[in-house]
Design a protein around this nucleic acid. Structure first.
Length: 828
RNA sequence: GCGAGAGUGGCGGAAUUGGUAGACGCGCUGGUCUUAGGAACCAGUAUCAUCGAUGUGUGGGUUCGAGUCCCUCCUCUCGCACCA
């Protein structure tokens, strides 16, 4: 019985995929260690939250990553490709309440299920390195890093107005508030004053900003988003003395050149000077009422709508230090306390918001920057002018160009002592306190004698109490656990209380990629030599929805870990691929829309390789992928066609059959062209869709070559060679399938032990080319010529062409353009 | 409003530098085999028409030649959004 007979007549993906997955599992095929003989390559996909089961977005993300991993291995790299679980978070608590279980139990059960799902997809992870962020062995190191950050002054506590989500019963960071709503549950966020822990990410603002320039392997879009988020602006801060008082109002402006055009002052309703300012004006009550009013309005409205500009005169004036002008002070609803100084010098002639306000309250508009060839009459202006020009009415700065004037005005303010250059940022410190149970405890102790004291390293981890029962309306679960809260102060040995806040789960995901270098290390969070070998991540892959939150925090942590001596790198991810969403019927998959596709069901119906192939084929990775069942069937059909052809070829035993040598070279040529194209598509941009279509073309060519009668078609040898290479090209995308057919063909070893094929330019070269013949730029005919034809020959052939002649007859040929290997264009 | 990106057959999408528009796949049409086919295989498939003409959101421009470059406008997606 020949080997061939043991293979079924149709491709049995279930049996084949199980077989290879078992082999990989038993041989720990993708386990790696540091190997200084080989160049390392670290490919990482954003690890999932263990919500219960994987979704199609994961399937796509991890399929892309797996192709990269398998491809790079074939290129001789020592590839690190790990997987883990972003396992802390609120859904576990909610689910635990709902199903009357424990968050840990729920989480670890989900992980078990999802791990099995990932294994069914045949993803080539080094499972030895797997961890979940809720493992005490992980978060103990996070607690250590926290304390070291605290000791370095990068952690502090303060009371602030925080974003409170009533639904989640917790605080959110600025980055986690989207359009005034919670990023997770979409509930409206409300302000609340609370004590909380902060990471001093603003210490790293400049570095986070400047290093963006080095991220050439990131999509420009993501870099821009981070740039905007950090929001650097430079300008002047300047004091306006309050008339009849020793106090002054500090303003910040990016347009110091317009400072002679200031006609009033606007304060944010929360501005601290307001209370004293109105004293004795007789307007105290009126102003206070107005402030209450706009603060309440601000809370109510969604961030979407921009309210009408409203304000009220405070009854006081201040003095413009540049020209001594006495200008009225207003409270205004559009001034933000969070930005700059909470006070704005209003220049209605050159700022649209100030302009609208001035029109509404009939305030003076004074133009001071006049663009070339224009004049402004304040009475007839219908919008502010924000373009540069020449200064007027600006004291000694009049006649200057407005751009040049900016620096001179700042210098003057500094010399006179009432102002200074200032750079402001939009980025705030990162509030990491969460009033929840299922998170890493913040390892701090509050002592009445000693104040805040870090938990000593040897006492780490501060474990979450396990026997917790979370009930629906329970807030701050740890707070209500005396056995957790009550402790001894490490400094004075007196009774003290543990911190009961847990850390934002984004803290875990900010350094997990580094821990993958040494997940088993029980001495230290990161071993320097191992992280130096593996980091940075060469290719990071995930959804664009993390463009700010996770990626910014990870960059921050990388720099902190470097400064703590754990890492040598400044940036964590050299190359970033942000893959598009998986959509169906033009919309994002969601339960409410009822268009969710279940990966389990797909895999059992079509097999992992088909699902992988389709998700790689249907669109390039950075674009949204429209899920289409018929497309999946197309992918399945393709694999079956290849299977049948290979099986028949192997069984036909056609050695010695006569063949056509021209067909033989043609197939070989196509093969080498395909190797070239597939390699280029993967290397250049991970454009697997076009790579797959090239392999399909190769298969079609081979298939028609094989079907020919004796004396035609390619030789057995060439077909075998083509199959061999085709399986190698396909291997990273459909590894089970390729491995199986490889074995069927009796090729030595397995595809993954082979090197990626290299094309031969000589063999890929076309002998005959189709040259397009144009008349006046329109295609009129085509001719076949040998590839080395000279220009003159081409031109002669073109002029002699019958179809061409129909179009040039009776006309004068003005010009002939010959483009090598492409076309001849005759202009008449 | 500001910023970025994108508009190509019935559909998903191709088209390295300006040089054959629609690769590859889906769908559809016809055929072969078949008791049957929603399997497989073969042929066809941008549109309109007889030569031929027209076609990459709109209108213009540059060029021998434009999906690709420039300008105008329209639409969509994403991000930011009273940031002084």
């Amino acid at each position: 019985m020949s080997n061939h007979d043991t293979y079924s007549s149709h491709y049995d993906f279930k049996q084949v995929e199980t077989k290879w997955q078992q082999k990989w599992e038993l041989s720990s095929a993708y386990q790696v260690g540091e190997d200084t003989d080989k160049e390392k390559y670290y490919v990482l996909e954003m690890f999932p939250y263990p919500s219960g089961r994987i979704h199609m977005g994961h399937v796509r993300n991890y399929s892309i990553g797996d192709v990269v991993a398998r491809y790079k291995r074939m290129r001789g790299f020592n590839v690190l490709h790990p997987m883990g679980w972003d396992a802390f978070g609120l859904p576990a608590e909610n689910a635990a309440q709902k199903h009357n279980t424990h968050p840990a139990k729920w989480t670890y059960e989900n992980i078990d299920y999802m791990r099995a799902q990932l294994k069914q997809l045949g993803l080539s992870y080094d499972w030895q390195r797997e961890f979940a962020t809720c493992d005490p062995d992980y978060y103990r190191w996070e607690q250590k890093i926290f304390i070291e950050m605290y000791q370095r002054g990068l952690v502090y506590q303060r009371v602030t107005t925080v974003n409170w989500c009533e639904n989640c019963q917790t605080v959110l960071a600025n980055e986690q508030v989207i359009d005034g709503a919670c990023w997770r549950c979409d509930d409206q966020v409300e302000p609340r004053n609370m004590n909380g822990w902060f990471f001093k990410i603003t210490d790293y603002t400049d570095e986070l900003l400047n290093d963006l320039q080095s991220l050439n392997g990131w999509p420009e879009k993501v870099v821009t988003m981070q740039n905007n988020w950090i929001g650097k602006s430079t300008g002047l801060t300047c004091d306006f003395k309050i008339d009849g008082s020793e106090e002054a109002i500090s303003i910040f402006t990016t347009r110091p050149d317009t400072i002679f055009g200031v006609t009033f002052m606007s304060l944010a309703p929360e501005h601290p000077l307001l209370a004293t300012l109105t004293e004795g004006t007789g307007k105290e009550k009126e102003v206070a009422g107005f402030i209450d009013d706009i603060l309440r309005e601000k809370q109510r409205q969604s961030v979407q709508e921009e309210p009408e500009k409203r304000g009220m005169f405070t009854g006081r004036y201040c003095i413009n230090p540049f020209n001594g002008d006495k200008i009225p002070i207003y409270v205004a609803n559009f001034v933000l306390m969070e930005y700059g100084t909470g006070a704005v010098m209003a220049v209605p002639a050159h700022d649209q918001r100030d302009f609208e306000f001035a029109r509404a309250y009939d305030l003076t508009i004074k133009p001071v920057v006049i663009p070339e060839g224009e004049t402004f009459d304040p009475e007839f202006m219908h919008e502010a002018s924000t373009v540069p020009g020449k200064l007027i009415d600006s004291g000694q700065f009049s006649e200057l160009d407005s751009i040049d004037a900016q620096g001179k005005i700042i210098d003057f303010a500094r010399e006179q002592g009432f102002g200074a250059p200032l750079t402001t940022y939009r980025l705030r410190d990162w509030g990491i306190s969460r009033q929840r149970y299922w998170g890493a405890p913040i390892p701090m102790i509050h002592c009445d004698n000693c104040g805040v004291v870090p938990v000593p390293f040897e006492q780490l981890p501060v474990l979450l109490p396990e026997d917790i029962t979370t009930s629906t309306d329970e807030c701050r679960p740890l707070h209500q656990r005396p056995d957790f809260v009550n402790t001894i102060c490490p400094a004075c040995r007196k009774e003290a209380r543990r911190e009961t806040d847990t850390m934002d789960t984004f803290v875990e995901s900010s350094w997990y990629f580094a821990r993958f270098a040494c997940p088993d290390s029980d001495e230290t969070p990161l071993e320097r030599d191992r992280s130096d070998y593996w980091l940075p991540v060469d290719q990071y892959i995930g959804g664009v929805e993390h463009a700010i939150l996770h990626l910014l925090y990870s960059r921050f942590f990388t720099k902190v870990l470097r400064d703590l001596g754990y890492l040598s790198i400044a940036e964590p991810f050299t190359n970033l691929l942000t893959q598009g969403m998986v959509i169906k019927d033009g919309a994002k998959m969601s339960k409410s829309k009822g268009n969710v596709v279940d990966p389990d069901q797909l895999i059992s119906q079509y097999g992992a390789d088909t699902v992988r192939l389709f998700s790689l084929f249907a669109a390039p990775p950075e674009r949204d992928l429209e899920w289409n069942v018929q497309g999946v069937e197309g992918a399945s059909r393709f694999l079956n066609r290849v299977y049948r052809l290979v099986r028949e070829f192997y069984g036909s035993n056609v050695d010695g059959t006569a063949y056509s040598s021209s067909d033989d070279t043609a197939l070989l040529r196509k093969l080498h062209q395909t190797i070239k194209k597939v390699t280029y598509d993967i290397e250049d941009d991970f454009h697997f869709n076009t790579a797959i279509s090239a392999v399909m073309e190769l298969f079609n060519t081979m298939s028609s070559s094989l079907g020919s009668a004796a004396g035609k078609g390619a030789s057995t040898e060439t077909v075998s060679e083509t199959i061999r290479n085709l399986l190698l090209l396909l291997y990273p995308m459909v590894p089970h399938f390729s491995s199986e057919l490889w074995e069927m063909m009796d090729f030595p070893e397995t595809p993954e032990e082979q090197l990626w094929p290299i094309h031969d330019d000589e063999k890929a070269r076309e002998e005959l080319l189709t040259i397009v013949l144009q008349v006046n730029g329109k295609v009129r005919s085509r001719i076949e010529v040998s590839a080395d034809s000279q220009d003159q020959v081409l031109q002669d052939l073109a002029m002699a062409d019958e179809k061409v002649n129909r179009f040039i007859e009776g006309k004068t040929v003005k010009k002939v353009i010959v483009v090598k290997k492409k076309l001849v264009n005759i202009v008449v």
